[in-house]
Design a protein around this nucleic acid. Structure first.
Length: 528
RNA sequence: GGGUCUAUGGCGCAGCCAGGUAGCGCACCGGACUUUUAAUCCGGUUGUCGAGGGUCCGAAUCCCUCUAGACCCGCCA
């Protein structure tokens, strides 16, 4: 007997947005424009988790708009971060740039102005492809333009208080000794090696010394330079433990999601925003990391990274949005093998939305429809599209490797799955074909064929080379097996192994004529 | 040391965040169709929802305790 009213479209995003609004109202803040933020890493290959941060923030923006407020998503690239590790597959020549801000490192592929922009662009391209709109901001511009200068000033003035609090909240001691500001050494362009020791409040300058430091397990050499950095314009950045807070205050951010890996940083930043900058921290939601199927964190160095671009070779943008919007809680093991079920799940949502599948439970119906609307970015289609089970498409794609699209299409028509060929379906066949080619490769097994079977296969090739009605092939195969004393069951199995590399498959007569009798005959003769 | 998540038929998972008949895929069994296999279609079996307690008319779902596993933080971002 749930008497609670449906909030918005009835899914977690609406609940989150309404909590946010409640909080803002009790804080009495201006609600003319509610900004939500997503931080984009610019040092590693952006995987689907990074995309998720922005996609979900965009969901909150949509919910706020649906509630009648104006909202905007800021995608902020952390491109002043230093390069710490060379990602898998990137040239070793990057070694000399370790510890430099990624926006000062040349793009090793030469297609963007810097390494950082190369990485950011991959993510932005992913966002564009799934239809997410955003305002792009970069750390490098933010600091150059001095947009954070007031917040930096206040933070540095309170650095000892902050240092103590960080130690208390998360047990990290270093900021009791050093300022939470990393200058970029004006001599060698390195970050982290330049340790900030003193803040000259009146001049707004930080004094630093560039010396050897440890990143990961490796020593990075400093150049020994003693310098000073002007916080209003020189390159340098706040440490993460305080940087979010400065940005939230400067950009007036009201919402930001975060992964559990930066939980501690968010805790500290919330305190800094509230107590030091006197800017009530934004509303948050925490999400779990995506793990690979072995339960390991998806890491670029292990090569198990799932990017939006790779996903889109096999699945539609909607399959990504469904993955990210269906829920936010829970640890999730993710792999490309999840694509087929997400593709089918979307079809199911659409069928429910258009009333083709009846759902009795009203709450579940509301939720399902809400999810469908969010997956369509609150702009759902007016009418249902033609659905084809994605797994069926994969099966058919496995069978037809040449002239795939027309042949699979013909089969779908034969099966009565679709009534007429459609460009939409062609696209789906393209995707499922990529999937089949990439993941469903049958390893070539050694097939043991005895003499009797070889003789039978020989007869079969002869039979296939003559013109014949396709309907007879099934029978011919059966007869050949029998007359040679081969068990039909085993004979069929051998044929499947030769033609498909599996021990089972579709009905073989029509199948052989689909592929082409001469072609099959040729394939078989290679095994005799 | 601190923190988070997960535990549901044989296997893989959804449902939990807004309590109201325990579901899906695979597997398995039966039937239909096909002169065999397979595919397809129809039907069916499979569960003390990790353990214990609490709230409630009612708990897989909310609260507390425990157990096991995974992950994150305690470099840096």
């Amino acid at each position: 007997m749930s008497e609670t009213e449906t909030i918005g479209k009835g899914i977690w995003i609406d609940k989150l947005a309404s909590e946010l609004l409640e909080r803002e109202k009790s804080l009495g803040r201006n609600l003319d424009l509610i900004k939500v933020e997503s931080g984009l890493g610019a040092s590693g290959i952006p995987h689907i988790g990074s995309l998720g941060d922005a996609v979900r923030a965009y969901g909150v923006k949509l919910a706020l708009e649906n509630f009648g407020y104006k909202s905007e998503l800021i995608a902020y690239s952390d491109d002043l971060d230093g390069l710490r590790k060379i990602p898998e597959g990137f040239p070793k020549s990057l070694q000399e740039h370790i510890a430099k801000p990624v926006s000062l490192i040349p793009d090793p592929f030469g297609c963007h102005e810097s390494y950082g922009m190369h990485m950011s662009s991959i993510l932005l391209d992913g966002l564009d492809k799934v239809g997410i709109k955003y305002q792009f901001r970069r750390a490098v511009d933010t600091y150059k333009q001095g947009l954070l200068k007031d917040q930096i000033h206040v933070i540095l003035q309170n650095s000892s208080k902050i240092g103590e609090k960080i130690s208390e909240l998360v047990g990290q001691e270093k900021f009791q000794k050093y300022l939470p500001y990393f200058p970029v050494c004006s001599n060698c362009s390195r970050l982290y090696t330049a340790e900030a020791t003193e803040y000259l409040s009146d001049e707004r300058k930080v004094l630093y010394k560039c010396h050897d430091t440890e990143i990961g397990s490796k020593i990075v050499n400093g150049c020994g330079h003693n310098g000073e950095a002007d916080i209003t314009q020189d390159l340098g950045k706040l440490a993460w433990k305080v940087e979010f807070a400065a940005r939230w205050a400067a950009f007036d951010i009201r919402f930001e999601a975060y992964g559990k890996d930066i939980m501690d940083s968010v805790k500290v930043n919330d305190w800094v925003a509230d107590e030091i900058l006197k800017y009530p921290h934004p509303h948050h939601v925490k999400y779990e990391m995506f793990l690979d199927k072995g339960g390991k964190k998806i890491s670029k160095s292990l090569g198990n990274v799932i990017t939006a671009q790779k996903w889109l070779e096999f699945g539609t943008p909607k399959s990504i949005l469904l993955l990210l919007y269906k829920r936010i809680t829970g640890a999730r093991e993710l792999g490309f093998e999840d694509i087929p079920s997400l593709m089918n799940e979307y079809n199911e949502l659409e069928n429910i939305y258009f009333g083709r599948i009846k759902v009795e439970n009203q709450a579940k119906l509301t939720k399902s429809n809400g999810l469908f609307e969010y997956v369509n970015l609150l702009n759902p289609p007016k009418e249902s599209s033609t659905h084809v089970n994605y797994r069926l498409l994969i099966e058919l794609s496995k069978i037809f490797k040449e002239d795939r699209i027309p042949r699979v299409m013909k089969k779908l028509l034969d099966y009565g799955v679709i009534k007429n060929p459609q460009p939409e379906i062609e696209k789906l066949i393209g995707l499922s074909g990529n999937y089949a080619d990439e993941f469903d490769q049958q390893e070539k097994t050694e097939i043991e064929i005895d003499e009797l079977t070889k003789k039978a296969l020989g007869e079969l090739t002869t039979a296939l080379d003559v013109d014949e009605e396709p309907e007879d092939i099934q029978n011919t195969i059966y007869q050949i097996a029998k007359s040679n004393g081969v068990q039909p069951k085993d004979f069929f199995k051998i044929l499947y192994q030769i033609i498909l590399g599996t021990s089972r498959g579709p009905k073989i007569g029509p199948f052989i004529s689909d592929i082409g009798r001469k072609k099959v005959s040729k394939t078989i003769s290679e095994y005799i």
